[in-house]
Design a protein around this nucleic acid. Sequence first.
DNA 1: GGAAGATAGTTTCCAATAGATACCAAGGAG
DNA 2: CTCCTTGGTATCTATTGGAAACTATCTTCC
Lengths: 136, 136
Amino acid sequence: MFPRGNREGVEMADMQQAYNVYEDRCPTRLVLDRLADKWAVLILDRLQGGPVRFNHIRRDIKGISQKVLAQTLRKLERNGLISRTIFPTVPVTVEYALTPLGSTLTDTVSALAHWAEKNMDAIFAAQRAYDEAHPG
Amino acid sequence: MFPRGNREGVEMADMQQAYNVYEDRCPTRLVLDRLADKWAVLILDRLQGGPVRFNHIRRDIKGISQKVLAQTLRKLERNGLISRTIFPTVPVTVEYALTPLGSTLTDTVSALAHWAEKNMDAIFAAQRAYDEAHPG
DNA sequence: GGAAGATAGTTTCCAATAGATACCAAGGAG
DNA sequence: CTCCTTGGTATCTATTGGAAACTATCTTCC
């Protein structure tokens, strides 16, 4: 079903834990490519409160360009993590929302964002120490 | 201390939750830039079992190039998440290990990697559905 | 004695991506 | 008529990512 190397003699029923993030060509890696991305993390975190419109996200997440926002939203939609709903208002309204699958991910993603907030001071201290020790 | 906009009249002691990932120029975002990265996630997850050497990581994480591995390790070291220890053996041995700070992160990071493994089938199903619905 | 292999990287080059900016259509407000 | 809104796409450039070759030192193989 998935493009993985067929271990000779191993039954499919026995391969429940056969996927391995460390393996190249393993489809898990294709998934990780799409999740481990700064903008995706921020967007998923932003959608936790309920559906949000395109330009609303754009204004909230400071510094994201329209192109990258559109690209990232397509990616997340294609992977079934968010839904895209068009309302035929004038001008047209497009709402993005977490799917049930996306909701199962946001806990982890938010934990990452919050870890960054909480440990930022330690990280900047480490950076200063590193830069002093490595002047080159 | 950090390059953030100074909210007028707000005391530093009251700014415990002043950092906000959605804000541009907020240093949290600089942190997230370095964490939300496919290779960093894989490396941190790989180091959970104890110290590992450069070429060992390289062999385990299939598909990573030497350049990107070296760059990512430097990045993680500079941010205080991993340590780098040189042993004057012949040939020289370099061991990378999680710091205490890095250890606080690996739970979150591993959760991300495991979410990817667990929900991969749902994601690939969503991709097929999307690609059928959007032939363009 | 010379070649190969291990260590941990750096260097070089090309393709892919990210970001900034401009532009599009359809209307509503002033 | 002009500017503003909606949600994007098109274009151009700067940065990054990946593949491959190269560095240097020492050990082992034949």
